[in-house]
Simulated scan of single mutants.
Amino acid sequence: MVVMFILNLTVFSHVQHLVSQQRLSDEFRAQLAAGTAPVSEGDFNDVLLADGVPVGILEIPSIGMYEVIVEGTSSAETATGIGHQRDTVLPGQSGVTKLAGRAAAYGGPFSGISSLSPGDTITVRTGQGLQQFEVLGLRYAGDPTPPNPVPGESRMILMTARGAPYIPTGVAYVDARLVSETQDAGARQTTPITLPPEAKPLATDTTTVWALVFALQFLLVIEVAAVWAFRRFGAQRTWIVFLPVLLLAGFLVADQTTRLLPNLL
């Protein structure tokens, strides 16, 4: 289980992220072509967006990053792409946008944002067109924050884990300001008060613990069956039949355990 956990965190999670990004990119580009890409917290039919749906495409040329943005910032959402914090406006709209991304696991899309310099360009493709931002600077907890935006101004804050890979010690923030035309802000139903605790930076999500319990039960049943088969049919037949199933069960447990880690890891 320990080996599977390490492999899942350092190898398999990146594969999962790559597959998710391809699917999300295809879905969002289809919405752009049809003119149905979301511009608020509701979809084209004013139905509240589900967690994990695509809302934009983020590109930072200076660090070679191209990533689909999804709605929500809990561990499940940041495993698939850059997460948009629900209580903030979409990129390019009047106000402040907050985007959360992982620094190491699941593709580590924000692993390089600490190297960004003032003046670097960030672009975001949304349902309202191409939004262009300019980096203001990097800061950590306790550092002075930029002044609040004036009415009609658009800002963006990128957030990721600070510290050695897979060992977060805090949160790093990159501030950017919109240099293209500001877009109208869509209606937001989520507020800072109603934002779930698991959606905050470096938060853990325990809402899927039930899935970990079922995965552990599945692993236990397979182990018991393997012991019985070993005594009944011998080692060779048991290994041939049960090794793939045990690996699958171990992967399921490792995957659910990884999802309990901080959302910026």
Rank of each mutant, 00 (worst) to 15 (best):
M4E: 12
I6L: 14
V11C: 09
V11K: 05
F12V: 15
V15W: 13
H17C: 12
H17V: 04
L18M: 07
Q21K: 08
L24H: 11
D26S: 14
A30Q: 13
A30E: 11
A33S: 14
G35E: 11
T36K: 11
A37L: 10
E41A: 10
N45G: 05
N45C: 07
V47G: 08
V47N: 14
L48V: 15
A50N: 14
D51F: 02
P54C: 13
I57Q: 12
E59Q: 12
P61T: 12
S62V: 05
I63F: 07
I63Q: 09
E67H: 06
E67R: 12
V68R: 02
V70D: 03
S75R: 10
T80A: 10
T80I: 02
G81S: 09
G81A: 09
G81R: 03
G81L: 06
D87W: 00
L90P: 01
V96W: 01
T97Y: 03
A100K: 05
R102C: 10
A103V: 00
A104G: 02
A105V: 11
Y106L: 05
G107C: 07
G108N: 04
P109Y: 05
T121R: 13
T126A: 14
T126G: 09
L130D: 14
E134F: 01
D143S: 13
P147K: 06
N148I: 00
E153A: 15
S154G: 07
S154E: 02
P165L: 09
V171A: 06
A172R: 07
R177Q: 15
V179E: 09
V179A: 08
E181K: 11
Q183F: 01
A187Q: 13
R188I: 08
R188G: 03
Q189G: 15
T190W: 03
T191F: 07
T191G: 11
P192T: 09
T194N: 07
P197G: 01
P201T: 08
A203W: 06
D205M: 06
A211W: 01
A215T: 05
L216D: 03
Q217T: 01
F218V: 03
L220T: 13
V221E: 15
E223G: 09
V224F: 00
A226R: 14
V227Y: 08
F230W: 07
R231H: 11
G234T: 04
A235T: 13
Q236M: 09
R237K: 14
W239K: 11
I240E: 12
F242T: 05
P244N: 10
L247H: 04
L247S: 05
G250D: 03
F251Y: 11
F251M: 09
A254E: 04
T257H: 03
L264N: 04
